[in-house]
Design a protein around this nucleic acid. Structure first.
Length: 271
DNA sequence: AATCGCGCCTGACGGC
DNA sequence: TGCCGTCAGGCGCGAT
């Protein structure tokens, strides 16, 4: 379940191996991802070098002078850099083979991920052009949350998970940030004060930055078979801890469903 | 415009 | 041991 920190960790792991390198071949073993992998990728990309690898929200952007590959890891996707002769395993759907003997390999058991190719500006792509600010950018602030939430009746947790409000706040970190800010996830977004949104924005930045830092600790092994970023090892204070004592007050953490998604909180510490 | 609920998909897990 | 039902979960999309 890649959240933004895992995608960022992936980016930092793969970028040094692929930037500036020429694509020799693209192999699509299974094009049935969330949307069909575009046909003719090999023809479009053959002979072109990656000019930059970057990220927008949870989308990875691999730019060439012929166009940009947009990748999303969905629920279960992972990207690894492996020696080109490494045998593909089950669920290894797409390979980008480079002239440095390495292969960028997309694995995605549940196939919720996707691969796109655009010849123009990738940020104008339909999936990207309505996205809100990056959580770690200065454009994302408590002011923005407050302004955008006026007259909104949805639960605040659902609100901050809306990609048009702010990107990259997934289910885990939404719960964690609301706990850190002391806000009940069920509260109506439009009823929360500016002061509390200032706290919440800071909490979102803090929890995501900490998770990226934790993920970074495994980067040195990124080309090895174990491509799992280590952000799960960071201590989650509420997520997945139903029934366990709150780290602040000891009361049992509760699990509820909001917007068809598991949500965890402390009813004493979060109001 | 805002909100709600669906469905894609497979591995993990619980029950028998 | 094996089979089956259930669930999770990002997120776009159609319906309301």
């Amino acid at each position: 379940m890649p959240e933004l920190p895992e995608v960022e960790t992936t980016l930092r792991g793969i970028a040094p191996h692929i930037e500036g390198h020429k694509i020799q071949k693209v192999i699509v073993r299974d094009s049935r991802l969330r949307w069909p992998v575009p046909s003719g990728l090999d023809k479009k990309l053959h002979g072109h070098s990656i000019t930059s690898a970057s990220r927008r929200a949870k989308y990875l952007l691999l730019a060439t002078d012929a166009g940009t590959v947009i990748l999303h890891l969905g629920m279960s996707g992972s990207l690894r850099v492996v020696p080109v002769k490494t045998p593909a395993e089950k669920h290894d759907h797409v390979d980008f083979i480079f002239d440095n003997g390495l292969c960028l390999r997309l694995r995605d058991p549940r196939r919720f991920g996707s691969v796109h190719f655009v010849s123009g500006n990738p940020l104008e792509h339909k999936l990207l052009n309505k996205l809100g600010p990056e959580p770690l950018s200065k454009e994302f602030s408590g002011e923005l949350l407050f302004t955008r939430s006026r007259n909104r009746k949805i639960a605040v947790k659902t609100f901050i998970m809306n990609n048009q409000v702010v990107v990259g706040v997934g289910n885990i970190y939404a719960s964690e940030a609301l706990f850190a800010a002391g806000i009940d996830p069920r509260r109506e977004a439009g009823s929360i004060s500016k002061a509390r949104y200032l706290r919440l924005a800071k909490a979102i930045k803090k929890v995501i930055a900490a998770a990226i830092k934790a993920g970074g600790t495994t980067l040195k092994d990124f080309t090895q078979s174990d491509g799992k970023p280590g952000y799960f090892s960071q201590k989650l204070k509420v997520y997945g801890r139903e029934g366990s004592p709150c780290v602040n007050c000891g009361k049992a953490i509760q699990q509820i469903t909001l917007g068809q998604r598991a949500s965890y909180f402390c009813s004493r510490c979060q109001r």
